[in-house]
């Protein structure tokens, strides 16, 4: 049994403590907005917030994060109206969309740490996440918009 604090509620899950958080979210809690892309911490499709910081959920073992605060894309805002999400719509960022939960979670963490990031800061931070459709220019514009409109 593992106890996790996900999106503001505590859940008890009957899984091995060495299960990656990604699979606990997707297969046990059915929070499928967090995506599997590589399982190796290389693509960022699985990015969630752990105590407010962007982390690859495929690299976290559930047994190590009991008591920590986990936020997924489903818990980022009550109505899908976090400034980053609104900016993502305004800039029409997604194409296939598969990586975008992870991109949004990383962008949101960046802005909470650095509300007015420079372009270099954005590029440095966001280079952790792959987008094969290459929506990168729109991601940059959306982050700049979210920073401005907050």
């Amino acid at each position: 049994m593992v106890n996790l604090n996900v999106n503001g509620r505590t859940v008890e899950i009957d899984i091995s403590p060495d299960t990656p958080l990604l699979w606990a979210l997707r297969d046990e809690l059915k929070l499928t907005g967090t995506r599997y892309g590589c399982g190796a911490g290389m693509c960022g499709a699985c990015t969630v917030h752990l105590n407010g910081e962007a982390m690859f959920s495929c690299q976290l073992r559930v047994g190590d994060i009991e008591g920590d605060t986990i936020t997924t894309i489903e818990g980022l805002s009550p109505e899908g109206d976090h400034p980053v999400q609104k900016a993502w719509i305004a800039e029409q960022v997604p194409q296939c969309g598969y990586c975008q939960s992870g991109q949004i979670m990383r962008a949101a963490a960046l802005l909470s740490r650095s509300p007015q990031p420079s372009r270099d800061e954005i590029v440095d931070e966001m280079s952790a996440n792959l987008c094969r459709c290459a929506t990168y220019s729109r991601i940059i514009r959306a982050i700049e918009r979210a920073a401005q409109e907050g």
Binding site: E74, W88, Q92, G97, Q100
Partner: peptide, 9 residues
């Protein structure tokens, strides 16, 4: 399709 792609839905 974009709104759902920003919420994980």
């Amino acid at each position: 399709d974009i709104p759902d792609k920003t919420t994980g839905a």
